[in-house]
Amino acid sequence: MRKWLLLLGILLAGCSYGTTSAPHRPPSDVMGPETRGPVLYARDCAWCHGSNGEGTARGPNLNGDLDGGAYTHFMLSTGRMPLSSPTARAQRRTAVLTPTQIDAVIEHVKTFGGTGPDIPKVEPTTGHLGTGSELYLSNCAACHSATGTGGALTSRRAAPHLTNPDITPVQMAEAMLVGPGCRNNDSTCGFGSGAMPNFDFSETEVNSITAYVSYLQHGGDHGGFAIGRIGPVAEGAVGWIIGLGSILLIGRWVGTRMGDNE
């Protein structure tokens, strides 16, 4: 029962996203590039991150050793930020800001003094799939699954699935560089947010990994319906319900004489 209430609560919370994220003010593209960033930042970010990115009790600072172009672009372009309310869950959705607005906010956030990496240049076509698969299996599969379906972590966190083709190679590379999400002890992070570490990959390694993740997004299933790519749990269900289920129906038909009721 509690589980169902919880589920209902989650569904309702999901509905409230749709209603509260809509009444954002109209795009402020009428402003010049110098004023656009600070105004958008003050409107959508400062409430939690502080007017100079110093952080507040509601959200982390934006002037640390990982903060900069890559981190900010990742958060804004995947729609994780800005949140519709400080307690909302930072999860992937359609970006709230337009690319021009995102660029403006990034330029403004950079002035806070963060020393993190800038938006990386990624070329998956130059990557090597074999190297990518080895690196992916060694570093990513433990949380995101070998098949890219994602998985549960401790403390109500979950590694998101990577098979969504909307995830761009640049976003993948940014995630590897900065390790988005919160440390496990960070109380300002919302429900279900991740705890990805940042990795020290070379440019060619990043290209290979993004090549492999793009491959996972766009194909790789060869044996028929992929049934979620979650392995033996789905396979067991199909084996019992579709496999043995249909055989039992057939067996019942074969084994029952016409006119028998039982």
Binding site: S133, E134, L137, S138, A141, A142, C143, S145, A146, T147, T149, G151, A152, L216, G220, D221, H222, G223, G224, F225, A226, I227, R229, I230, G231, P232, V233, E235, G236, V238, G239, W240, I242, G243
Partner: peptide, 30 residues
């Protein structure tokens, strides 16, 4: 028909066994 229609144990995703690697979710057959 199941063999032709439903993918089971796609080992090419899992890759060769390496004691240093792990994947999740990891379950045995039912």
């Amino acid at each position: 028909a199941l063999g032709g229609l439903f993918q089971i144990n796609p080992v090419w995703f899992f890759g060769p066994f390496d004691p240093a690697q792990v994947t999740s979710p990891a379950q045995p057959d039912w």
